[in-house]
């Protein structure tokens, strides 16, 4: 199918290889981009383990688990779409891609419900942030347990330490946890939105029968991107929702 080969490539094989490698290198930059946030997470979780436990307990594990399953299912659809496109079933590929898109939208919907819950409970970092250990018990799996905050374990010092009760200090550390929660899940959600648009374009092309055994590069490459976004969530889920 020479019609798909750009002027500067010798053949379709070279073009496929270049596109594939290009996406993988782009994903390497994405690993580093999200990885920086994971690095910030690592440093702060090391500094304030109690606050991370407390913050994590207020997240909804059920919603998080459902969302993970939804995203894994969307990844399955994308993998099946690539398989379909590569075996000359362009229409079937379109169907699978639409399935993946629907799952992506469901994920974003559940995420929106969770965000709304955070706003309702004043768990959004900023001037109105509030966090009370006792009142957050409804989500806690292991019920009440005493949280001791050791001021001396906090590097960097705190000039007002003397004026703050341990609860107030914990509240600030939990705000830090939620800052990271919103930065990481927000960035992830942004990637999901981009992915949905990307898959939408590819699904439309697939519906028109653009892909075949000899040319399915866009399906493969946008699929790589989608799977990567899935992998980010695979790490985000236990690190944010499942801290004990």
């Amino acid at each position: 199918m020479t019609g798909h080969v750009a002027h500067h490539f010798d053949d379709a094989e070279q073009q496929f290889h270049a596109a594939n490698l290009g996406m993988w290198i782009f994903l390497a930059t994405e690993v580093m981009f999200f990885g920086s946030l994971f690095a910030a997470y690592t440093a702060y979780r090391y500094m304030f383990p109690e606050a991370f436990v407390a913050g994590s307990h207020s997240l909804d594990v059920v919603m998080g688990t459902i969302n993970t399953a939804v995203l894994l299912l969307s990844s399955l659809f994308v993998a099946l779409a690539v398989n379909a496109a590569a075996t000359n079933r362009s229409r079937a590929a379109a169907g699978f891609l639409v399935g993946a898109i629907v799952m992506g939208v469901v994920f974003l919907g559940i995420k929106a419900v969770e965000y709304a819950d955070k706003f309702a409970h004043n768990h959004v970092p900023g001037a109105h942030f509030q966090f009370h250990r006792e009142s957050e018990g409804e989500h806690a799996v292991d019920g009440e347990h005493h949280v001791s905050v050791n001021e001396s374990a906090i590097p960097g010092g705190d000039f007002q330490a003397g004026h703050n009760s341990p609860d107030r200090t914990l509240e600030k550390r939990v705000e830090l946890f939620f800052s990271l929660y919103f930065a990481m899940t927000g960035l992830h959600a942004l990637h999901m939105v981009i992915g949905v648009v990307l898959l939408g374009i590819v699904a439309y092309q697939a519906w028109r029968g653009a892909y075949s055994q000899t040319y399915f590069t866009p399906v493969e490459v946008s699929g790589l991107y989608w799977h990567f976004v899935d992998i980010v969530w695979v790490f985000l889920f236990p690190l944010l929702y499942l801290i004990r």
Partner: peptide, 30 residues
């Protein structure tokens, strides 16, 4: 490709902190 995304993330976090008041590097929060 391996270095630039990290500074981009750092700037992104500064922007969140400065623009939206989401403190990541804020010593007041620890």
């Amino acid at each position: 490709i391996l270095g630039t995304p990290v500074v981009a993330a750092a700037i992104f976090l500064v922007a969140l902190e400065r623009g939206l008041g989401i403190g990541i590097f804020d010593p007041k929060l620890g």
